[in-house]
Design a protein around this nucleic acid. Sequence first.
RNA 1: GGAGGGAUGCGAGAGUGGCCGAAUCGGGCGGUCUCGAAAACCGCUGUGUUGAAAGACACCGUGGGUUCAAAUCCCACUCCCUCCGCCA
Length: 426
Amino acid sequence: MIDIRLLREDFNTTKTALQRRGVETADIDRLVFLDEKHRRFTARRDQLRSEIKKLSAQISALRRSDKGETVDQLTAKSKSLSNEEKAVSAQAESVNSELRSLLLILPNLPDPDCPDGLTAESNVIIRSYPTRLPEYPLHQRVPHWDIGKELDILDMERGAKLSGSMFPLYKGMGAALVRALTSFALDLHADTFTEIQPPTLVRTQTMMGSGHLPKFSDEAYQVERDDLWAIPTAEVPLTSMFADEILEQSDLPILLTAHTPCFRREAGAAGSKTRGLLRLHEFNKVELFGYVTQDQAADVHSDMLRRAEELCKKLGLSYRVLDLCAGDMGLSAKRTYDVEVYAPGCDQWLEVSSVSWCGDYQARRANIRYRSADRVNQFVHTLNGSALAWPRIWAALVETYRLEDGSVEIPQCLQHYMRGVGRITK
RNA sequence: GGAGGGAUGCGAGAGUGGCCGAAUCGGGCGGUCUCGAAAACCGCUGUGUUGAAAGACACCGUGGGUUCAAAUCCCACUCCCUCCGCCA
């Protein structure tokens, strides 16, 4: 969440920034109103508590000198103050809880450099690789769901039998391909990122830390019986890994990578954009994550983006990078770059990575700080990015590498991870 | 799943109703001493909210309750440890 003091101390700038993200004026005004009210109540409450404390001390002292009636008098007075304190506390608490719930669904302030706009149409393509989309011959114009069936490496029907639509089942070299991609990526990141294998079912509190709750509860699978949630991305456990901790500045940056399954309900999604592997309830992804100081954020952000792009390049896929506009970014982000690969078979650009700098928004929620050199505690900055989400890569790969005879070539860099197999044939 | 034990500041660990936000030791930081270091000695050293400041208030696993007053008493929960059972 954002620091409420920004609204208090620099109202106009903050309001304008929030409006760029599509926040209603009425909500902003409500926040300011509640903040003032909350401070009034807590001030009164603290004043009452202070008086009660003083009376208690007097009672304690008088008890020893045995002044019965004075003690009774003071006790009665303290009792009535105590009752008032309870009432005021309750009011303060109720205002606080409304304030907090509003704050928890309020988006982060966008980076000033991030493009204006409220919808995906305003996202800016900042580069394409290769600069011009190559010509794809007819044999590369077959969608991956057909290729998967033809080569018997993807069985969406049986996946659906087990779990419903949008749950894929990879088979044979199809399954090996996902595993190869994972190993390839993790090995590539291992130079600077520490590999983590986190739990994939997490507490409500953990989902709150990254910003996935309370606003997006409809998007997540919930294990109600045990009060756990299936993670929609490794970002969730990685964000809360250091929750409620104070790190040393010398520990930073902390750079992590994790391969996990990701679960998304994708409520309401249906139609041509969901065929095959385009949109799934469960998929695998390698994630990059960073805890950094404010000064380190920009470098780590561009390094993560570079890594996502590097993977696309090494896999020989056409891709482009988008600078997301203020209104299209996720709740927690200040600046986001998306990487999209081109899938010639289904003729679509597929988002395979989203690299975000979240400032101190998540750190504030999860209470993650570091002791700076001048011994002042500050919130860390967090960054996350996929590198990469495999099903769409899988799709783009089999479509791009399909040969005239219907077989699919395996890119050189992956063959080592696939027992040396260079081609998937019928 | 059953039985028991525990949770206090950076770490260890006292504290069972009233100057306890918390003894003591260790660690860290600063100083004295030293050519320098070690040792010794002295001092400082939790987090947050609010306030211009002085200050005030909150926090002793979490949430409730009792009381004029709770780290301390009561209730519920969570986590950790030990033993038994079960198990990839």
